[in-house]
């Protein structure tokens, strides 16, 4: 049922010419898919999709739309060829699904390999109730390190693509009007919500071992709080609260914290990212290690997201007020 909704939303996205509506619809699409993930028992994934897909992703698309034209040009081609390619691929894929194990089948090959070990032994080896967190941070710690490095690299890529010089910033800032000054209701409600959002982010960060949550989600929620503040109180005020250079340094600090934990493990005589040696008791060591690397993940993700938003906003300011 929900899946059909999703397909309908996706079809609506293809038909729209107004990119603003397309972006809003893709936000709705993300929210729908988050509720679907929840239905499929993937609470952590649903959490991430709701905060990333429906929150930050929509925001970044909107920030881009401020810089590029809003309407799509009508295509001059008949898309018959594309449609043909798509239908043929689809037919092949559907043919491929006929061999798949049925949905919800407990005997499917996916559930035979490592999953039983994670589910049965992780409580003794890692000692955390949330298996997703223990797999993410401990069993597959290398993977997660790789992902964090990718996020970091993407952040650096955007920074170098959308650089705005200090001189331009200073000159543009003198001309920027205080945009949201008259939005009293918005500002007051935001002031009320902001501390709660930030506390919630910290809760998600440190409660991720026991319930759904963790560094990725917490980082994104924290960034969303800061971005809300930026939108309502202006770029210059936010940047006097949080120095952009500081945020940029934090992106690297998170990755360093993560890999540093691995190196400390090696110095203490274990393997890279083997947290057992961090404390006298292996389970305590695992707790400490997971806490630290989740913190590293959270710091990097939050700092990268905040930096992305700053960069896009500076670009807009530059184009608007720097002729």
């Amino acid at each position: 049922m929900l899946l059909s909704f999703l397909a309908l939303t996706a079809i609506a996205i293809t038909r729209m010419g107004d990119l603003f509506a397309v972006v809003m619809l893709s936000g709705i699409y993300s929210l729908l898919s988050a509720s679907l993930f929840l239905d499929l028992d993937a609470v952590d994934v649903a959490f991430t999709e709701a905060s990333v897909g429906a929150g930050i992703s929509t925001l970044l698309f909107l920030a881009t739309l401020k810089l590029v034209p809003r309407y799509e040009k009508k295509s001059r081609y008949k898309p018959a060829l594309a449609l043909g390619v798509v239908i043929v691929t689809g037919a092949l894929l559907i043919y491929g699904t006929l061999d798949m194990p049925h949905f919800g089948d407990a005997d499917a090959p996916v559930h035979q390999h490592v999953a039983p070990r994670y589910l049965n032994d992780s409580i003794n080896e890692v000692g955390l109730p949330n298996v997703v967190t223990s797999v993410l941070a401990s069993y597959r710690g290398y993977d997660t390190l790789g992902e964090v490095v990718v996020v970091f690299a993407a952040g650096i890529g955007v920074m170098s693509l959308l650089m705005v010089s200090q001189r331009t910033k200073a000159r543009a800032l003198t001309k920027v009007p205080a945009d949201m000054q008259h939005q009293i209701i918005l500002r007051i409600v935001a002031k009320m919500m902001l501390p709660l959002i930030l506390i919630f982010a910290l809760y998600v960060q440190f409660h991720g071992d026991y319930g759904p949550g963790g560094g990725f989600q917490a980082g994104v929620i924290f960034a969303a709080g800061i971005i809300l503040y930026t939108m309502l109180f202006g770029l210059s005020l936010t940047q006097s609260v949080i120095k952009p250079v500081f945020v940029e340094m934090l992106t690297a600090f998170g990755v360093l914290l993560y890999s540093g934990v691995g190196i400390v493990c090696m110095i203490l005589g274990g393997n890279y990212l083997d947290y057992d040696v961090l404390s006298h008791d292996p389970v305590h060591g695992q707790h400490l290690g997971i806490l630290l690397i989740e913190l590293g993940v959270g710091i990097t993700v939050a700092a990268v997201m905040i930096t992305l938003f700053f960069k896009f906003t500076w670009r807009t300011v530059k184009h608007k007020y720097n002729q």
Partner: peptide, 9 residues
């Protein structure tokens, strides 16, 4: 979970 965050980046 990690793919989503990498995807947005």
């Amino acid at each position: 979970l990690t793919a989503i965050v990498v995807g947005i980046a």
